[in-house]
Design a protein around this nucleic acid. Structure first.
Lengths: 194, 194, 194, 194
DNA sequence: AATGAATGAGCATTCATTCAT
DNA sequence: TATGAATGAATGCTCATTCAT
């Protein structure tokens, strides 16, 4: 019969993708079993079968979306020369600008999933991974403590842009990143804060 | 004369306070007409009567909750001496520690309301106010651009603490705030002149 | 408009009645918000509005159904003369026979609601009321302790009939009730077991 | 020779045991293919493979759980001397106390399975077996009719304890059992002859 | 023979909002 | 002006059962 659609091993992945699409359009709040099932064109029961709870689905989605900024930084920094803090700051500011300049909804989605961890403990580990990914991308270029501060500054700058309908000011970001990076100890491998 | 006041202005405030208490305990998602009405001990219809929609109530609540960190900084910085960037950094780091060290739920609530603006345009102006309040507290001590960067860094540091179950590292915050403040144009930079 | 059906003060009662009708036909397990709403011809939301939970509805239904056997005994014993234990036993056995001889589904319903208390603590108090009602009907004719034993024996006899597709043996019931009643202390008001 | 047994008879038993454990903890209502399969640590399909329906599994479980009170009585009465009704009543009351004094959940489970027969005709024969088992344990000590009444009284007393959160009153049970047994035809009645 | 992916029906419950009073 | 009864839509989730493998 043509009716059977049984055994679809990629079903799980398709559901996660659908969830990301839903969140992309309507925010995390829009993710429900029903909306996701409809978007993925699978029966409702399929979403609850593959994911024990919505949180589980959310974690999977967050994990998949996680790579946006991290990849941008990793790719962008890989090419850059091994200059000093000022050059690194300029590169970071430029990459950030490229990322923020992309589709707004995509950026919002990534940050919304990240920030959702505030009230959903289940997402905390994945949020930590997100921070780690970005930190790791910076690792080869500065010490871990400074890298952590860069992540914080980047997060704060992005938040200002996203939350206040502001525009990204690349020069501002470059300057402030430079200040943070300027204080780094001489060799990237050093890891003490002071 | 014998009539109790017809137009009860306290009623509205009590509802807002109840909404904050509800959000404090169960997050923004916990705010519904029912929970708020129950918490405020007012009839269900009263919440829909005084607030045309839930968003309207949310905005009122956000505006009221907004003053936490801002007030901490304003009060704390008012007392502090007019030292250089390093001293300011130390003071800020200390104040931040005090704020984050307080009741976790209160801190989460303030940030949750702030971050909710990401997906609710109605909250954007209030989120901007939040940032402005913190910036204003810093205004007398550094230039506006640096103040904005400080706000970004503070946000990022708070986020790392809140989103990853991490602990606040005051020394780390002090060091990084010092780096950002050190680059400010007019004020003394790295020199230790009091 | 003819559409409006608002303000129906008897709505709550009608829902309880519908629940009893549903349980009558399909057992307690058949009681769901949907089946009851359909039976009562009210919107689904109406059942959850009037009863905070299914248990609450169940308690109301159980309380309403509670009076079956109790009323039979109260009415039947009221008429009977003030004979000794043997006469009381005969009367009880006859009344029990009349009650069990009625519509089977009704008897099952009453016992099912009563027995449901085993796993639903919320129903325990109502089940206790049930036992108290029957005990109270016997109170004027014997001492409380014996009355309690009569209730136990009656319950056990009914159970045998209901659970094993057996037939009610009035003579058997009369004999055993007489044995229990024969041991009662001389005066009904006495309340010691021995 | 080298093949592990194809037809695995233990599997079926393990599933029944798991079902009893599930019912023990969460009541009959907690028995589902999923919970049982998880508890038995067998694949989901295994439960539907070995049991055509849930009722079939339930019957198997009920039959296995059936022996609790019956065994207590058989064992306990076997040892006891061949005393008269009063001694038998005392022994029965003591045994009942021991059984009810054991783990509450176990007692509830046994009665719940027994009472479930009220609405599930498939369980009726097994419920009848339950009554027969208890009756059989009493058979050597009194006449069949009195034994049946004893079972009824025991059931009623247990029900009062289980349904009303009451406490078991051994003296009460002893007295009432004695009254019923005293009326038995052949055996010595109130006389204490050993 | 055995399994686990799949599914459609159904569940209790929550909710924002409406509107008759 | 103020309220609470009413409601339809939606939500997360569970389940017995089927059936391709």
């Amino acid at each position: 019969m043509t009716r059977t659609r049984r055994y679809d091993p990629e079903r799980r992945d398709r559901i996660v993708d659908a969830a990301l699409r839903v969140a992309h359009d309507g925010g995390i709040a829009g993710i429900t079993h029903r909306t996701v099932a409809a978007e993925a064109d699978v029966p409702l029961g399929s979403t609850t079968y593959h994911f024990g709870s919505l949180d589980e689905l959310l974690v999977a989605a967050l994990r998949k979306a996680n790579e946006g900024l991290g990849r941008v930084l990793r790719d962008g920094l890989g090419d850059a020369g091994d200059g000093g803090g000022d050059e690194l700051a300029a590169t970071l500011a430029r990459l950030l600008g490229e990322w923020l300049g992309g589709e707004r909804a995509r950026v919002e989605l990534e940050y919304e999933l990240y920030l959702a961890a505030l009230r959903r403990p289940a997402l905390r580990p994945v949020a930590a991974e997100w921070a780690d990914t970005v930190t790791a991308a910076l690792a080869p270029r500065t010490d871990p403590v400074t890298a952590r501060a860069v992540v914080a500054l980047v997060d704060g700058v992005c938040l200002q842009v996203l939350l206040t309908d502001g525009t990204y000011d690349e020069e501002f970001a470059r300057e402030m990143l430079a200040r943070v990076l300027a204080g780094a100890p001489e060799r990237p491998t050093r890891s003490t804060a002071t």
